[in-house]
């Protein structure tokens, strides 16, 4: 099963995290989970996943800072980061992009929608020269 893409799910709200994990498994992904920013960094450096789904509002080290650190590190710089937030106010997507996120999805986001976004990012990562970011919507 090592050829299946590894997704690192970062979300402090366990119900959501487990729901997405369940569906991603069901959709054929390997899934690793993290409940806060520090855990997310540890997991990322340890596992080097194929894609990271990052909730931005995290206790302690938040999603923006975590993304910045991942993107600064040589080991994890190449991993696409899909930002996930329940904040729909203007400015959030720009902030996420500035921090280094490759995609942006607003909650509520149905599981199948998230899978579609991840597929789009992975396709982009395989062809880095034509990487496209996907704009999520409610």
């Amino acid at each position: 099963m090592t050829d299946q893409p590894l997704v690192l799910l970062v979300d402090d709200f366990q119900d959501n995290r487990e729901m997405y994990a369940l569906f991603l498994h069901h959709a054929g992904f390997r899934v690793a989970e993290a409940g806060n920013g520090h855990e997310a960094l540890e997991q990322a450096f340890a596992l080097v996943p194929d894609v990271i789904v990052m909730d931005l509002s995290l206790p302690g080290l938040d999603g923006w800072e975590a993304t910045r650190r991942l993107k600064r590190d040589r080991r994890t710089r190449h991993i696409p980061v899909l930002a996930l937030t329940s904040h729909a106010l203007e400015g959030f997507s720009e902030g996420a992009r500035a921090a280094g996120c490759d995609g942006f999805v607003t909650k509520p986001c149905l599981p199948e929608q998230l899978v579609a976004e991840i597929h789009a990012l992975l396709d982009g990562a395989r062809k880095p020269e034509s990487r496209t970011s996907t704009q999520g919507g409610s």
Binding site: F13, D15, N16, M19, Y20, S86, K107, C109, P111
Partner: peptide, 8 residues
């Protein structure tokens, strides 16, 4: 946030 889980 909870609505996300409900709908999901």
């Amino acid at each position: 946030t909870p609505l996300n889980a409900i709908l999901g």
